[in-house]
């Protein structure tokens, strides 16, 4: 090459924009740490989540032995919180994957084929954007019962909508780009265009949609568990621990405090991380 300017890939600028955003880098670090802790839970906790090993110390305040104290039925709160991270992150990630699995093909089909398919998908997306997800989720959970599987089904039933909207928009813009026209003029069929052009060029909104679907699912799980229609005890859930802790709030404030902090910080950091990714990939989307 004969010009002197250093040519840099779009990825380079995306990376630089991301790492310039201190809040999202910090959030990413927290998420990695929490994920590691959740995976290594049995190794780093003194007891399992259901062990009532410390009945004689029930309701004990935080100490060196019990970092976050002991709950009313003698379970180590720190252990329950770390195992709770497994539930929360697990539901978040699995629901987000399910949302991708539903949302990507539907959004891509709507954007690519247009016509009736697009009409149907956009109508469904429209309906979903009007109904309040949490209310319907509460109703569904109370009718069909809570439990991990049902919560994942409910939250992906709502989570795919955002992914489909993002992917549809991206496919619509990529479809109109000249390189797709060029491929069509060369005789390329739909399959070639979707596989070789549309999907590779839609990777970044898919990643962003995936990351942003995680906190939504976590929040839904926590809210349902808070109302008692979510995760079934004794499996720990931060939402449920908050609601249980409310009874003891006046004297044993540590019971609701720690799950609240973890829920707040986790939801906050995943959202900030997702926003940071989105802004890094596409600065023009900022604040949308």
């Amino acid at each position: 090459m004969n010009d002197l300017t250093v040519v840099r890939s779009p990825g380079f600028y995306a990376r630089r924009r991301f790492f310039d955003n201190k809040a999202s880098v910090f959030s990413g670090a927290f998420i990695i740490l929490l994920t590691a802790a959740a995976i290594a839970a049995p190794l780093i906790t003194p007891s399992s989540y259901a062990d009532q090993k410390y009945l004689d110390e029930a309701l004990a305040f935080p100490s060196a032995r019990h970092w976050f104290g002991v709950d009313n039925v003698g379970r180590d709160l720190y252990a329950r919180i770390i195992y709770g991270a497994r539930v929360s992150l697990g539901i978040g990630v699995v629901s987000a994957l399910a949302s991708i699995a539903i949302g990507v093909p539907l959004g891509a089909a709507a954007g690519f084929f247009g016509g009736v398919i697009d009409w149907i998908v956009t109508r469904i997306v429209e309906i979903f954007s009007v109904i309040p997800p949490l209310l319907v989720a509460i109703l569904a959970a109370s009718l069909f019962g809570g439990g991990i599987l049902n919560i994942i089904i409910i939250s992906s039933a709502f989570g795919w909508v955002g992914v489909a909207r993002l992917v549809r928009g991206q496919v619509l813009t990529v479809k109109g780009r000249e390189f797709v026209q060029a491929a069509r003029a060369m005789g390329a069929g739909s399959k070639h265009i979707i596989v070789r052009h549309l999907i590779p060029n839609s990777i970044s909104p898919i990643i962003v949609g995936f990351v942003l679907a995680i906190p939504q699912a976590m929040m839904l799980e926590a809210s349902l568990s808070f109302l008692g229609v979510g995760i079934n005890p004794p499996i720990p859930s931060w939402g449920q621990m908050i609601s249980d802790g409310l009874y003891f709030m006046f004297f044993y404030w540590h019971l609701p405090l720690f799950p609240t902090l973890f829920l707040a910080v986790t939801v906050l950091t995943t959202s900030i991380f997702g926003d940071g990714l989105r802004d890094a990939f596409d600065p023009t989307l900022k604040g949308k």
């Binding site: 780009r177 000249e178 026209q181 060029a182 070789r196 052009h197 590779p200 060029n201 990777i203």
Partner: peptide, 10 residues
């Protein structure tokens, strides 16, 4: 436009 007619991901 040779900037638009080549797929940036290929």
């Amino acid at each position: 436009d040779p900037f638009a007619s080549l797929d940036p991901m290929m």
